[in-house]
């Protein structure tokens, strides 16, 4: 059987809220090392990769590898019934056709159980090599969210250019254009506000803002978003979930026709 208890149930709520608009349904893969998901959006332009380590759970048991297909909208409906401070336990019997979500309030005076029907989903996995990236930018997650939101009011795409000291986000639209530059800033006294750039080679790539805005829904999971870019490769946008794992998004670039 599979059984996993997350004391910070809010994490699971935030993860599902971050991905439910991007992917309709997906297989959650459980094995002895953890709980993970890999799914492409319907247009095969972006990919979500979630990984929650077994040791990030308060209790974790997975007797055999299982793949549980779920409709994200249904999962979201159920998780919305959990309070932010509830612990969440997921349970499923081997070869079962449902997964049970148990919500416990901190004082355990309220216990609720919701069963979600599992689905058979044909999923297409992509083999993603561990790339060396030309540039890595770590910036406050809220700052990244604001940049992609603000630029979306002007244009549909963003050109992200990284140099040694700064990262520039630029867009062009019918009403004009916009540029936002963030300089490297390693404020030791305010680590949550730091912007760090690690670069092997200057890089400049263009992406659809619609998807970056969707990725930024993961902002509540982490203080920082990490952007990894390489010429002619999809961007990797990572949110590290402290002590539990990470939620990552890949987005293919746009190129001149």
């Amino acid at each position: 059987m599979f059984e996993a208890r997350l004391a910070q149930g809010a994490l699971l709520k935030k993860v599902v809220e971050a991905i439910k608009d991007l992917i309709e349904d997906a297989n959650f893969d459980c094995n002895s090392s953890g709980f993970s998901l890999q799914a492409m959006d319907s247009s095969h332009v972006s990919l979500v990769a979630l990984s929650l380590r077994a040791d990030g759970f308060e209790h974790y048991r997975c007797d055999r590898n299982v793949s549980m297909g779920m409709k994200l909208a249904s999962l979201s409906k159920i998780l919305k019934c959990a309070n932010g401070d509830d612990a969440i336990t997921m349970k499923s019997e081997d070869n079962g056709d449902t997964i049970t979500f148990m919500f416990e309030s901190p004082e355990q005076e309220r216990l609720s159980e919701f069963d979600l029907k599992l689905m058979d989903i044909d999923s297409e996995h992509l083999g993603i090599p561990d790339n060396e990236y030309d540039a890595t930018v770590k910036l406050p997650a809220a700052e990244f969210q604001r940049i992609v939101k603000d630029l979306s009011t002007i244009g549909d795409t963003v050109e992200i250019s990284v140099t040694k000291d700064a990262v520039k986000f630029g867009t062009t639209g019918d009403i004009g254009n916009a540029n936002i530059m963030c300089r490297q800033n390693k404020a030791a006294d305010k680590p949550d506000e730091s912007t760090e750039i690690d670069i092997n080679e200057a890089v400049s790539l263009t992406f659809a803002l619609r998807y970056l805005n969707s990725f930024a829904k993961a902002t509540p999971l982490s203080t920082h978003a990490v952007l990894k870019l390489s010429k002619e490769l999809p961007i990797l946008v990572e949110y590290h979930i402290p002590e539990v794992g990470r939620l990552a998004f890949y987005l293919a670039p746009k190129i001149e026709d």
């Binding site: 999809p234 746009k254 026709d257």
Partner: peptide, 14 residues
């Protein structure tokens, strides 16, 4: 015009 590439252009089915 910018063309949107797909992920399978970059990553092999695995």
């Amino acid at each position: 015009m910018l063309q949107q590439l797909g992920l399978p252009v970059f990553y092999s089915p695995g």
